[in-house]
Amino acid sequence: MEDTGTRIFLRIWAVLIMLFLFIPIFLIFLYAFNTSNIESWPIPGLTLKWFSATWNDDNVRSALLVSLEAGLLATAIALVLGSCAAFAIHRTRFFGREVVSLLFILPLALPGIITGIALNAFFSFNNITLSLATIVVGHTTFCIVVVYNNVLARLRRMQGSLIEAAMDLGANSVQVFRDVTLPLISTAVVAGAMLAFALSFDEVIVTTFTAGAQSTLPIWIFGQIRHGVLLPEVNVVVSFVILVTIIPVAVAARLTGGGAARVPAARS
């Protein structure tokens, strides 16, 4: 047991780190309610006017729509491909299985800029016009990984004899999947999907290289900050993106049993 002095010191240290991490985010929330459009401290007063201004901004609206579409589509594709990949890797034994498993995870570990440039080169080489579809492809590359990881981890934790037990009691493979496998992996699938959506929703780098004329919310934010205009609206949008990202991550963490949700490497 550490002595009291060490304990107090560690607590203070932990608090300081939390403050360091979260004060900037908290400030952005606060600035979203700032009456002045100049970001200075202390803020002169609180207002909700930027929220309605943002909501009525057509550019923000279309960016939100693109973000939602890209996120939902990429998540849907990742769900199918990621789950199938997890089942295949879990069920079968073949030479090079570990390598294949690593290749599945690689897109998330790879710097976004590499994925982005590679995809961009590929699309222009094949004369594919950058569009919503190419954004979806870009996002799917790393969304697959979180679904794959979550489902595979659950499958590995599942008692192998459960499937045999179901077969032993008369269930054919369809019934085994419906009654045993699916209910046991469902929370992992949902958690994977939520994380995938959260990742997609705040992605910048891959999107930069795969988007044509469209912009997603993060791309819009990036553009506004570069031009230094509409900063109060940026704060509103950033707050919104943070919430949309944090909530699914928190829910996913609960679904996977309180432990850290399976995002192997931080991104964006």
Partner: peptide, 19 residues
């Protein structure tokens, strides 16, 4: 296949469906 056999098994780890 096992699901068409008139046998039932008591597994060493019981293999009860947790859900």
């Amino acid at each position: 296949p096992p699901y068409q056999r008139e046998t039932n098994t008591v597994f060493q780890d019981y293999a009860l469906f947790p859900h």
